[in-house]
């Protein structure tokens, strides 16, 4: 952990601030959320790394999806993700969001969350223990450090594709597109 290195703070303040102030929106879709209270309370105390839960997506920059994702919750997940300000990082928690987990053959559960929103990292396990969350966070720090946690940029770049996938699955969405569609293609072409 390089939180106390003043030289780094002066060199790249944005990156360092993003690393050490991860305010998390926990999207509690399933059983995974049961592991989060130990993470944020006295036993493991995530706050010492600057990770605290926040109440609304506007205030956070870390989006944690803790559990299986049904079609109905996917709407809310997309909506919440789009309401977070950039830069934002998404982490899938547990095996359900990765590949459906024990709901692998359910007609109503998403098997690939990263088709619909970009995901920066996964924490595997059913369910992962709190230690795994911290390992995930240190990995995320490394990714931020190396500019590899750029899901929000990917979302912007390939917004047409993501929106297409979303509409293919959910039908017509009842909110307007986040980015003007078509712009991304032009940028890529140029």
């Amino acid at each position: 952990m390089d939180r106390n290195k003043i030289g780094k703070w002066l060199k790249q303040p944005a990156k360092m601030a993003n690393k050490y102030s991860l305010n998390a929106v926990y999207f509690c879709t399933g059983c995974g959320i049961i592991e989060i209270p130990p993470v944020i309370t006295a036993r493991w105390d995530a706050e010492r790394f600057g990770i605290i839960p926040v109440a609304t997506p506007r205030q956070g920059n870390l989006f944690m999806i803790t559990g299986y994702v049904s079609l109905k919750t996917l709407r809310a997940i997309i909506r919440t993700y789009e309401q977070m300000p950039d830069p934002k990082y998404t982490v899938g928690f547990g095996s359900c969001p990765i590949n459906g987990g024990m709901y692998w053959d359910s007609y109503n559960t998403i098997k690939h969350l990263d088709r619909y929103i970009p995901v920066d990292g996964w924490i595997a396990g059913c369910m992962p223990r709190p230690e795994a969350v911290f390992i995930g966070v240190t990995h995320l720090w490394t990714l931020i450090e190396k500019d590899m946690a750029n899901g929000y940029l990917r979302y912007r770049e390939h917004y047409d594709q993501y929106r297409g996938n979303q509409e293919k699955l959910l039908g017509k969405l009842d909110w307007p597109p986040l980015y003007a569609t078509g712009i991304a293609q032009k940028e890529i072409a140029a």
């Binding site: 360092m16 993003n18 102030s21 506007r58 309401q83 300000p85």
Partner: peptide, 12 residues
């Protein structure tokens, strides 16, 4: 740190 991060986030 939080305030610094928030200033780099822009906002709505």
């Amino acid at each position: 740190i939080d305030i610094l991060r928030l200033f780099f986030q822009g906002g709505m």
